[in-house]
Simulated assay, not measured.
Amino acid sequence: MRKLPSLQSLRAFEAAARLQSFLLASEEMHLTPSAISHQVRGLEAYLQQQLFTRSNRRVELTDAGARLAATLSTAFDMVEEVCRDLVPKAVTESLSVHCTPSFASKWLGPRLPAFMREYPGLTIRMSSSAEAVDMLKHAELDVAIAYGSVRRQAGVVIEALGAERTAPLASPRLLDKGFQREDIATLTLIESNLNPVRWRDWFKHNNLKMPDKPQPSFDRAALVLAAAVDGLGVALESVRFAERELANGELVIVGEGMYKQIERETHFFCYRAADRSARKIQQFHDWLLRESQNLAGDN
C-alpha cells in the first residue's frame, strides 16, 4: 500500500505554491481560502515540515516546500498529459464539395458559418471550377453542385435546388426617376456567358426589341455583378447570386414589376447513388434544400 497524504491536500498545496497565493488557489479550486489553508496545514502536519512561511498576507515556500512543489508540478503535468491523451477525441468528418466559383463565393460561402454551427462535427472541403465534373470519375468528391444543363447518368443522383429568378440588375445610379419599360434598351447590356438565360431570351420573353449594339461580357457571375455595381451597365444574372448587393443597395432590379419574370432550375445537387445513405451527404443535402427554399420564399 502506498503511504501518501491525501490527494486533496497535495492539490491544494500545489495550487498555492504555483500561484503563490492561498486566495488564488481557492478561486482555482472553488474552495474558500480557509479551506486551502486547512489542507496545507494538514499536509505540513503529515510531513512534520513547514512548507510555507506566512507574513503580511504573503506566503513563500520553504526549502522543503520548494522541493515538494517541484516534484508535484512535474507529476501533475504528467498525469494531466496522459489523461488528455486518453480522453476520446471529438469525432469529425469531412465533406468534399465541388461547385462553380460564383456559387461558392456569392451564395454558399456566406452561408457556411451557419452550416458549421449546426453541424460542428462536419468539415467542408470545397473546390471549384466552371467545368462540370463526373462524379463517377472523381472518387475524392462527395457531392457536386452543377450549374446550367446537367447530363443525366446512371449511378448519379441529380436534384434541382429549386427555380431561381434571373433579372436585370443595375446600380441605382444608372436609372432615372422617370424610367420607362423601353428605356432598358438604351442602357449597356452586360452579358453573362455561363448563364443559360441570355439577353436575347429576356427581350423576347418581354416582347421587346433587343438593341443592336456591342455587349461587354464576362465568364463569371461574380465579375458580371461587380461590373454592374461599378456602373458599367445592366447585368442579367441570378438574383440568388446578387442577394448581398440587393440587400445593401448596391444593385436594384431594373424596372421591378414592369417586366415578366424568368425563373429556371439552374443549380443541381449531385452525388453517387451508392452514397445515398451516407449521413453527412444527407445532412448537407437537407440543409442546402432548406436554404434554397428560404431564398425562393424571399423572392
Rank of each mutant, 00 (worst) to 15 (best):
R84S: 11
D183V: 07
Y147M: 10
K209P: 01
M116Q: 14
G148A: 06
E80D: 15
R200L: 07
I253S: 05
G162D: 03
E14H: 15
Q50I: 03
F13Q: 01
L246H: 06
H38P: 00
L61N: 08
S171C: 08
L86I: 04
A163H: 08
D201W: 04
L31C: 02
F241T: 09
N193S: 08
S217T: 08
D201I: 08
A25G: 07
Y46C: 09
R67E: 14
A16Q: 01
L23C: 04
Q282T: 12
L232H: 09
K177C: 07
L189T: 05
Q180G: 11
R54Y: 05
L24I: 05
A185F: 03
L24G: 00
R220L: 15
H285V: 01
C83D: 14
A242T: 08
H267P: 00
L72H: 03
S127I: 01
T53P: 08
N299S: 09
A227M: 07
A45S: 12
A222Y: 00
T123Y: 01
E14M: 10
R41S: 14
L246T: 05
E118C: 01
D63N: 15
A247N: 12
F76D: 00
I158V: 13
Q39I: 01
L136E: 07
W287I: 04
E159D: 10
S127L: 07
A170M: 06
Q261H: 12
E44R: 01
A163P: 04
K213N: 12
V197D: 02
E14G: 04
A222N: 12
H38K: 14
K137D: 13
W107R: 02
L225Q: 05
T32C: 01
V252S: 13
A114C: 02
R198V: 15
P101R: 05
S149T: 14
L31E: 01
V156D: 04
V143K: 00
V87R: 15
V156G: 09
D77C: 10
K89R: 14
L223C: 05
V133A: 08
S292F: 02
F22T: 11
F103Y: 10
D212V: 11
E28V: 15
A274C: 08
E118M: 06
L51C: 04
S21E: 02
T32Q: 09
S217H: 11
V79E: 14
T266G: 06
G109V: 02
R200G: 02
A70Y: 04
V40C: 02
P88V: 06
E182G: 08
H30W: 03
F241K: 09
V133C: 07
A185P: 06
A35F: 00
W199P: 09
S277K: 12
E14C: 13
V224I: 11
L43E: 05
L47E: 06
D286F: 05
M116H: 14
Q180N: 12
G255Q: 06
A221M: 06
S149G: 00
R276S: 10
A296F: 03
L108P: 01
P168R: 02
L112W: 03
R181I: 11
S55F: 14
S21V: 04
L86P: 01
